[in-house]
């Protein structure tokens, strides 16, 4: 069976990395292709680009970034942000993405998941679930948010996850909005509730500050993969550090390059 995956994520705006790695050997810290190549060399298991370009007109820059990345980097690539239609999915896949993450549009029109999965296969369709902790009476749960976390939907995150899995999603990217940016660790309750409910793989996201948080997400959160941004960006830890730590803690991972 596959081992757990470590997925660094780069935020890309107008074709430039805005929150990225600070590898000293990079000539240009803002070039997503160069950063992707650095993560590839470091033995990342996959790579995620999140397009946070605000204006629709400038989105074409992302296709160029993906195409240039796919020419040099031979690892799985997920792209998310602003995906609105089956045609958007098709263009991203043709440019060289392997998986496309859909969030707001999936809530607005869940049939988009089924259409895209039917055309390109479930394995190409990731549904991103942004969720926030909520309490209704005695019931504790998580609510789905869209539009980059600005709009509450009233949807229960666990129920929504089960629904999109049934609709044809191949994977879920579950982000805790409460934890995002806090470095306090993943919301393990959220991650585990969803991972235990669905048969498709779950990627945990939001809140990583230490290597131990990665282990918690994979072991206690039951996630199949962990996504992290800032711990790698600021050079606090390398992919290699993460792999070695997890190996030592008995979590099955692919060893870093040059290690047995």
């Amino acid at each position: 069976m596959s081992v757990r995956r470590i997925i660094p994520c780069l935020d890309v705006k107008d074709g430039r990395v805005v929150k990225g790695v600070q590898f000293v050997e990079l000539r240009d810290a803002g070039d997503p292709v160069e950063q992707a190549a650095a993560y590839d060399a470091a033995g990342a298991d996959e790579l995620c680009f999140l397009d946070i370009t605000a204006s629709h007109e400038r989105r074409d820059t992302m296709y160029d970034v993906i195409a240039r990345t796919a020419e040099q980097v031979f690892m799985p690539l997920t792209v998310g942000g602003g995906v609105r239609s089956v045609d958007d999915v098709r263009r991203l896949l043709l440019a060289g993405a392997d998986k496309v993450a859909i969030n707001t549009s999936a809530v607005e029109d869940p049939s988009l998941i089924t259409q895209a999965a039917g055309r390109f296969g479930s394995q190409a369709i990731v549904v991103a679930v942004d969720a926030r902790h909520t309490r209704v009476g005695a019931d504790v749960g998580w609510e789905v948010y869209i539009h980059g976390g600005r709009t509450a939907t009233g949807l229960d995150a666990v129920g929504w996850a089960a629904r999109v899995a049934k609709a044809g999603a191949g994977e879920l990217l579950v982000t805790s909005m409460d934890r995002d940016g806090t470095r306090a660790g993943y919301d393990l309750g959220l991650t585990r509730a969803i991972a235990d409910r669905v048969d498709i793989p779950v990627i945990a996201s939001g809140g990583v500050g230490t290597l131990e948080h990665l282990r918690e997400g994979l072991v206690d959160g039951h996630a199949d993969a962990v996504l992290a941004a800032s711990i790698f960006h600021f050079g606090t830890f390398s992919i290699r550090d993460a792999k070695i730590y997890l190996q030592e803690m008995g979590v099955p991972v692919r060893p870093p390059p040059g290690m047995p």
């Binding site: 069976m1 596959s2 191949g170 994977e171 235990d196 669905v198 048969d199 498709i200 199949d224 993969a225």
Partner: peptide, 20 residues
């Protein structure tokens, strides 16, 4: 097969995605 579990009682996920 979907709905199977590993020795730690975790669901084994389909699609099978990852490195082996």
């Amino acid at each position: 097969p979907s709905g199977t579990r590993d020795e730690n009682d975790r669901r084994i996920k389909v699609p099978h995605i990852g490195w082996s």
